[in-house]
Write a protein that binds this DNA or RNA. Structure first.
Lengths: 358, 358
DNA sequence: CTGTTAGCGCATTCAT
DNA sequence: ATGAATGCGCTAACAG
């Protein structure tokens, strides 16, 4: 019923080995036979059996891209960009040549699912794995991840981090592209301070994630640099943690305003959270930015369309994702030391202004 | 070097077949031996060889989810929802049990890449394929898709459409969840007409996609139902096509305003496009909704946070994606006739009001 | 409930 | 440049 390599060989009057060689193209084959074989492939509508091929060759053409939340454009943009470098141009024939199968795996931010997906990819003998977004800092989980990644790397799987700091152990096995979340966070808050803000609320992400920690650390660096926060307990009082979603931004902002109605600015962990923060501010009858300035992080596409446009920190998500894809394909050499820090750019827009006097 | 099933069998002092049985769990095994085997698996840190397993069993645990643009939350939400039903709960061990590997494939809207991905999934003997979003209506491509899907279905791959109309041939091979784009589009424009709008611009998506066509048809049904458009050429003049992105919304809206400065409302092909439309309206010095009403489609999460909040048509993306995932897993029976139409709900918000008199 | 026996379809030595 | 032979690691009958 199902057409195999042998069938193609028979029709082309060559040996199975020859068919395999023209299909993989890694070996000299006479032009005339190649043509004959390809015609037989078309005639028979033959489709290579991936599992059999992978088994015999001990490698596969699968590349996994792990993301925390695919419904969030932050990850969608990186994943899509990576895929453009992995999927190959496509030859328009639908026949599929040497392309890899770039697949996106949605962990939902769960450490367990992250490990499960890695195991699944390990089973498939994936050619490469790209891990995007911040890591969870539970020691057990980090150790388990490190062990599993080491094993996969050992088995020949290329490992690439994208927007994620390298593992504590600092394996040389991986190439890491880390965003400068700390620096971006610092400059953003410095901007607010330079405008004259002194009481700044901070809606942070989940405490266990590296991204959250780094952005928050940057924020506090800026506060301390200006002699704010550390001494009077404001840092703790004006920081509220929650997930990276709109609802969290809304509720955390209400909480911050309740704790201190005199805050003049709210910094959100990312742009999505900032949208929720804006809604909360408005629902309190306050105006942005006249009464309260609001800032985000990431510069997602919708941020420029917020009203007023959102001051935020731009991360080159597409470029980083594409580079991660190239690293996964071995098209590009790893950065020196295996790790590159990607700069973050402050985008000042209408949602931040000097606080009202008085 | 690499641990195989036989190694585990040797260590557990059982036959390879027994190990296979406990791993797959589809067969009775004595509790004591099962335990022994599992311990051996852990001791040896054994990982099943996916390709070998798939080859022998002639099936794989891969499920493909095809999307047009993973950076667009419209697809991210559906894909993520589908994955929640497919990936399995995860047992927290990271060991990976009977889960499927749900993978998202980003076609970028290209027909060629769509076919290429299907071929790749066909190679892998995917257990199921979920196709999301509107289809491209080029006859050749439709025929090629129908042929390939038929072949895959024939080989045992489950095919599910999500937010996509069934194929013209109407194969019984697939289960289809189709959004009521036409009805939603019609009700949206009827809403504007009922407010008193008479000259309504329409920023449409790419003309070759079913989603575009259906939404536009709904729009025109409403116009004609009110005796508008058809006779005076407004339909054509006030419709501009473009991709489903912000930029297109911006530019098309400028074009519409140029063609007819007296339009009082602009309907966009989706919410992202609507955001661009809003920006264009504002850049022309016009206010929303006082000078011009703007409406979108999909009700993506950010739409409620637009200022003013966007009137749009809500599609239950998460629910539809989850249902598609269950259909792909065979956890749920296909709808009668193989096709279910998913209702669209009009969400009236602040971006639409009656036009100014005069 | 468990062991034995055969392939699954292909890539890759070796020959020629 | 091509063919023949071997085995990748596992599952699925079939015995027992």
């Amino acid at each position: 019923m199902t057409v195999t390599l042998a069938d193609v060989a028979a029709r082309a009057r060559v040996s199975p080995a020859t068919v395999s060689r023209v299909l993989n193209g890694n070996y000299p084959v006479a032009a005339s036979t190649r043509e004959r074989v390809l015609r037989a492939v078309d005639d028979l509508d033959y489709v290579l059996n991936g599992p059999a091929s992978s088994l015999a060759a001990a490698t596969s053409d699968l590349v996994g891209i792990l993301v925390n939340d695919i419904a969030d454009p932050f990850f969608g943009i990186m994943a899509g960009a990576a895929q453009t470098q992995i999927g190959g141009p496509g030859d328009g024939s639908g026949r599929a040549g040497g392309e890899k199968l770039a697949v996106i795996c949605n962990t939902g931010g769960s450490p367990e699912r992250e490990l499960t997906y890695l195991t699944l990819l390990q089973r498939q003998r994936a050619a490469a794995v790209v891990l995007t977004g911040g890591a969870v800092e539970y020691p057990d989980h980090q150790a388990a991840m490190a062990a599993k990644l080491a094993k996969m790397a050992d088995a020949g799987t290329r490992i690439v981090f994208c927007g994620r700091p390298p593992l504590p152990e600092g394996d040389a096995l991986v190439a890491a592209l880390a965003f400068d979340n700390r620096g971006g966070g610092r400059r953003l808050t410095e901007h607010l301070i330079s405008l004259g803000h002194r009481r700044i609320g901070y809606v942070a992400g989940p405490p266990e994630r590296t991204t959250t920690r780094h952005r928050l650390e940057g924020h506090r660096e800026a506060l301390r640099g200006a002699g704010l926060g550390a001494e009077d307990g404001d840092e703790e009082r004006l920081t509220v943690h929650g997930p990276y979603d709109r609802r969290s931004g809304y509720e955390a902002t209400l909480e911050i305003l309740r704790r201190d109605p005199t805050v003049t600015a709210v910094v959100a962990a990312n742009d999505t959270v900032a949208l929720g923060a804006c809604a909360a501010v408005r629902d309190q009858g306050l105006r942005i930015p006249q009464d309260i300035s609001v800032a985000g992080f990431d510069d997602l596409p919708f941020s420029v369309d917020a009203v007023p446009a959102l001051t935020t920190v731009r991360l080159p998500l597409f470029e980083a994702g594409a580079r991660a894809g190239r690293l996964a394909m071995g098209k590009e050499n790893p950065p020196p030391g295996g790790i590159a820090t990607i700069a973050a750019e402050l985008m000042i827009r209408g949602s931040t202004t000097p606080p009202r006097v008085g």
